[in-house]
Amino acid sequence: MKLLFDQNLSRKLVTRLADIFPDSSHVQFEGMTEADDSDIWEFAKVQEFCIVTQDADFAERSRLNGSPPKVLWLRCGNAPTSRVEARLRSGAETIQEFMRNASLDCLEIY
């Protein structure tokens, strides 16, 4: 399962979570630091990434367009990277189920 971390999240998450989410990336690593949401959406769709973001815009786009790509919307506010990592680790099983379920487009994680 490939996650694409949005600009509003630390790029350190890629290496910190590589054991449970291998092949993940960050928009910065993909040369998309200045890309707009539409470009990130299309990139994630083509490359089969799930977008991980704190940005409500991607969740809204998911509601309007469906998936792919799927969206993990982190609703934990401006949390430290360690807390974001912990939430993704504790929700790993739920995230895997979400990724397998073709009828779900967006998963909110609090």
Rank of each mutant, 00 (worst) to 15 (best):
F21D: 08
A86P: 13
G77E: 12
F29P: 03
L74A: 15
I95G: 09
V84N: 01
D105K: 01
V52Q: 00
R75I: 03
E42S: 14
E42M: 09
Y110E: 15
Y110D: 15
A56W: 15
W73R: 09
R87H: 07
A79H: 01
V52S: 08
E93L: 04
W73N: 13
S62V: 03
R11Y: 06
A44W: 10
L104S: 12
W41K: 01
V27T: 10
S24H: 03
L17N: 00
E30M: 07
N101Y: 00
R63A: 14
M1N: 11
S24E: 05
I95T: 07
P22A: 08
S82W: 05
L4P: 02
V14M: 05
L13S: 06
R75C: 13
P68A: 09
R61G: 14
A79S: 08
D105Q: 08
S25F: 00
T33W: 08
S38G: 14
Q28A: 15
D39N: 15
F49R: 04
I20M: 05
P80L: 06
K70I: 09
R100N: 13
D55P: 15
A44G: 13
L88M: 01
R75M: 04
H26Q: 08
S24N: 03
H26G: 12
E34F: 09
D55S: 15
L4G: 13
L104I: 02
M99Y: 10
E42I: 09
C106W: 02
V14W: 00
L17K: 06
S38P: 03
L72D: 12
L107M: 01
C76Q: 05
V71R: 09
V27N: 11
F21P: 02
